[in-house]
């Protein structure tokens, strides 16, 4: 294992049962390595297996065959809690607790390291409170928004809070599952810039699934394209050509179908 590698997928396959004698292959023999500190963007059509790939890293799913290696350790049931503490996750729908304040939402990311009594009474340790304020300041939130409920924020602001929550425990890896799908282009760019800046500051590796190719090209250090559960492209964003995208998204086939229907 190379010293600089952070996550490695080793012939990972994941199948979902969808009825008797039927199963859906979400990932099929996927192998690639993500080096430490890289901003890796995963693209691919809906249902291609992007989210499944990310959920294998934070332990929300287990591979059917193959294995995922996290910082040199194979992810197993025994070490998953330890690994989960080193992984921050940003979700498509932000997944903030809408009735909790901005500060509490960010501090909820420290939950694994805080006692149940402190969680119950919301008496968060001072150093975590300071870190939460620092992160909120970094993502452009202001002091008067600290005690506003998450439901009172706009989509972009909620995603900023979610980024702060993901970075509160200084994770080694941040997973962003379509973090800008529900945001407009301007806010999307701003959120991704914040994400990249935060990962650069903390040295975290980012695996981010995206649908917006232009954003992927703009922000990614590396692009991995998934098509029908397999890696269809793995390389720098500059080398991502129209032909590759046509292949990944089956655009040529769709254009042909559309021409036939029109005729």
């Amino acid at each position: 294992m190379s010293e600089c590698e952070m996550v490695r997928f080793e012939s990972v396959s994941r199948e979902f049962e969808c009825g008797p004698d039927r199963c859906l292959v979400a990932l099929n023999d996927v192998s690639f390595t993500v080096p430490r500190g890289q901003f890796c963007v995963i693209i691919g059509p809906s249902g291609s297996g992007k989210s499944t790939l990310l959920r294998l890293i934070n332990g929300m799913l287990e591979p059917t065959t193959g294995s995922v290696v996290f910082d040199g350790d194979r992810i197993t049931e025994k070490n998953i809690i330890e690994i989960q503490r080193r992984v921050g996750t940003i979700h498509q729908q932000f997944e903030l607790v809408s009735r909790m304040t901005v500060l509490d939402n960010v501090l909820s990311g420290t939950m694994p390291l805080v006692s149940t009594l402190r969680v119950l009474t919301r008496l968060w340790p001072k150093h975590f409170q300071r870190r939460a304020c620092s992160l909120l300041c970094q993502v452009g939130m202001s002091e008067d928004q600290l005690y506003r409920r998450a439901s009172q924020l706009s989509g972009g602001q909620q995603q900023r809070v979610a980024i702060a929550r993901a970075f509160i425990l200084s994770p080694s890896v941040v997973l962003a599952d379509e973090p800008v799908s529900s945001l407009d282009p301007a806010i999307s760019r701003s959120v991704l810039r914040l994400l990249k800046e935060a990962s650069r500051r903390s040295g975290a590796t980012v695996l981010c699934s995206l649908h917006q190719i232009e954003l992927a090209v703009e922000f990614a250090d590396r692009v991995v394209a998934i098509r029908q559960g397999s890696v269809a492209y793995d390389g720098s964003p500059e080398r991502l050509t129209r032909d590759i995208l046509d292949h990944v998204y089956d655009t040529a086939e769709q254009d042909k179908d559309a021409t036939e229907v029109a005729a």
Binding site: M60, E82, E95, V97, S108
Partner: peptide, 10 residues
């Protein structure tokens, strides 16, 4: 959603 988000932190 929020429950899964917090559960995934360990």
């Amino acid at each position: 959603g929020p429950q899964d988000a917090l559960r995934s932190t360990g």
